[in-house]
Design a protein around this nucleic acid. Structure first.
Lengths: 239, 239
DNA sequence: AATAACAACCTATCATACAGGTTTTGAGGG
DNA sequence: CCCTCAAAACCTGTATGATAGGTTGTTATT
């Protein structure tokens, strides 16, 4: 097998890349939606005239990016929008010191100034309640930093969701991993109960502004929140 | 081989996922920088006590996300920050209709309002020149839409680069693919030469503001540019 | 008609083989 | 002693075949 060469346009992008393109192309041309099944590996093998090894590596790559879902016995399916790949890129940038935590916070500030304003304008009552509840749970679990952090993250993701723009959600969620790695540092610099409660109060102010539907006020509180967070990180010596 | 089971904590996330984690973990723990070599597939095979197939699929997955570089004969190396994976996620969202072009433009507007302001503050003279040159080339190739588009994209990426925050660059570049698919539509709605030249003038205004180091003016021109672009897309019926 | 065993299909993983690249090494010549 | 260059060692890319185990639809039994 494998005598019939592809049209000799490009020299060698590798068979796997070709297969990946073929699969994404298939999704596009068939107009597949999340949940729809893809061809089996065997079918793809025949169609592309390559070994199953190549097809498998292609599927696996798409699965790693969370563009498709795979599981044993079942055919692969088109995946719902997921932040998996983006998170890994950001994490990679951080661990290889190509980007700094502060740079990530700069971007977060830019984006969340917007999501919070949009949330104030577009939130449903249910979304406003979810946001407020995350803030409340931060206060309730006040003695458990781990829990405060998770509710903090959920708070920001809930705001992004209330912006009703999934691209914002995608980006904000992609940054959550970085937050998980640095959050405690910021928390520790707020050494007194008072300072910590003030930070939680900041979240409640944001939630209130969203509930009131006041985008300007919400953005103001968010800006303040980020300025303090960044300051905390800098004080702690995070580059 | 393969009798010695992993500590039976998790049931079965799949050997490949485990391998992927092992590799990223290796990068982290060894403090590898871009260009540094990773262990060979054979070495990884021994270390993880799995077949080469599994290790290969893990490497290939990371390569698809552009976290590592692979090429025949050479060992894989840690990759420089690249937008590959992010682009694919966005594209996937668009083709599966989970996000709309307009939503992407909303995010772009938010981000580029910021990058342009930062560029005005932080740009080097060389960066200002590169931005101005892209604008100039848009005008010079005015009769060739394809060329105008590429210079337009380069213009925005140059501004992101001049913000001196690679995360912004990453995101802006990730959106370029979407731009390539919709740009022409916007261009066509500017039916007269006059309207098209006005759009190019908008870019020159932005470049000037950056050169002058005026972040407020730069952001204003950028906002105007995006408002017109979005309007053009909506006029053309892009949801 | 409900259900349980089964067949067909599919993915997960392993082992092996061979065809090219790339790097290392070492022998021979200057 | 150093340079050169070709063989050797190592590495990735792809193909093939085999087995285990999960999923699903079908059929035979009750």
């Amino acid at each position: 097998m494998q005598e019939q060469t592809d049209p000799p346009g490009e020299p060698n992008p590798g068979l796997v890349s070709t297969a990946i393109q073929a699969i994404t192309q298939h999704i596009r041309s068939e107009g597949l939606a999340p949940g729809d099944p893809l061809p089996s590996e065997a079918a793809m093998t025949r169609q592309l005239n390559v070994s199953r090894t190549v097809v498998r590596e292609a599927f696996r790559s798409l699965s790693a990016m969370r563009l498709i879902d795979m599981s044993a016995g079942r055919r692969a399916t088109v995946a719902k929008l997921d932040t998996g790949a983006m998170s890994m890129v950001i994490e990679h940038g951080i661990t290889t010191q190509q980007i700094s935590v502060q740079q990530v916070y700069d971007v977060r500030r830019t984006i969340e100034m917007r999501t919070v304003a949009l949330a104030a304008l577009r939130r449903t009552d249910q979304e406003a309640a979810a946001i407020a509840q995350s803030a409340r749970q931060m206060r309730e679990n006040f003695r458990n930093p781990e829990a405060v952090m998770e509710h903090d993250i959920a708070f920001h993701e809930a705001i992004a969701a209330a912006s009703h723009n999934p691209v914002f959600s995608l980006i904000v969620t992609a940054f959550s991993g970085v937050t998980r790695r640095t959050w405690v540092i910021g928390w520790r610099t707020r050494s007194s109960d008072e300072a910590q409660l003030k930070m939680i109060k900041g979240h409640e102010d944001i939630a209130d502004a969203i509930l009131k539907g006041d985008p300007r006020l919400a953005a103001e509180h968010m800006a303040e929140h980020f300025d303090k967070s960044v300051k905390a990180l800098i004080d702690a010596g995070i580059a």
